[in-house]
Design a protein around this nucleic acid. Structure first.
Lengths: 135, 135
DNA sequence: AGTACTGTATTAGTTGATTAATACAGTACG
DNA sequence: CGTACTGTATTAATCAACTAATACAGTACT
């Protein structure tokens, strides 16, 4: 697995797991229906209590990006967020606003904000395509 | 003052203050060198301990968006973040990545991501211009 | 100088988040 | 059917975040 914990990060372990898995899915490194490591397996690998991993998986399930089947394991969802498109746009809008407010207060101009956005978007989209092509 | 606290928000009071002031500055509702309400005044208004407001102001000062002068009060900085442009882009990039990862996992496509970004950016830029023109 | 305003420091109480130990319960599959 | 794997529940310890009470210290301004 590609997950690594940084004890000095200050961010709770379970959130580090959540973030990295979310990023992995968004980047296409984890494809729909692909199994995640079992709670125990990942816990062992990260030298962490199984409950901590379970907590991360719980969050991810709540967000709809993974699903679980007792005895079988945990899997990446196939794009199944039960939210209206408007709600999803609202959530996204708030996160983008947060980023832009920060950017403006850092003294960055409209052009730089656009450039940074494009750069990040391109990177994500290219990563996704590279992954979905290779399998 | 335009700040309002939502006790049910879950977000700490001091962070609600920080966010709203940052947004206010980014939107141009608060202009450089403009004074903020005193710690006591805002605390009274929000029915909150002065230290809570002070804590918010401390964060804002650390981020460089305000500065304080004993006896005189607290003021909006004039774009004074001491960070290289590269560092600032990195910070912004991380926040945008976070937003985009979330957006992708919500099932939004490239087009919708762009649209949402443009919508939010336009809103901020227009607000800024409206404010800076009116004074 | 004195009064009334600024922000600051100290201390302490409360609460919730985080993680872990450990024991439980359900499913796969030889 | 039983063993070995899944995830789950319970409980508890620890720690840090948050907020408040209260007292302190510096500046403005008449």
């Amino acid at each position: 697995m590609f997950i690594s914990i940084d004890p000095a990060s200050g961010l709770p372990i379970y959130l580090q797991i959540v973030n990295q898995i979310k990023t992995g899915i968004a980047m296409g490194r984890l494809l729909p229906e692909e199994p995640l490591p079992s709670v125990r397996q990942l816990a062992l690998e990260l030298a962490v209590n199984p409950n901590t991993v379970a907590r991360a998986y719980l969050d991810l399930e709540y967000d709809g990006v993974i699903y679980k089947r007792q005895g079988a394991g945990t899997f990446v969802s196939a794009q199944g967020v039960e939210m209206s498109k408007n709600e999803r746009r609202k959530v996204l809008g708030e996160l983008i606003e947060k980023a832009l407010v920060e950017g403006v207060n850092l003294g960055l101009g409209e052009k730089e904000l656009r450039e940074t956005f494009e750069r990040v978007l391109e990177r994500i989209m290219q990563a996704r395509q590279a992954e979905t092509v290779g399998r």
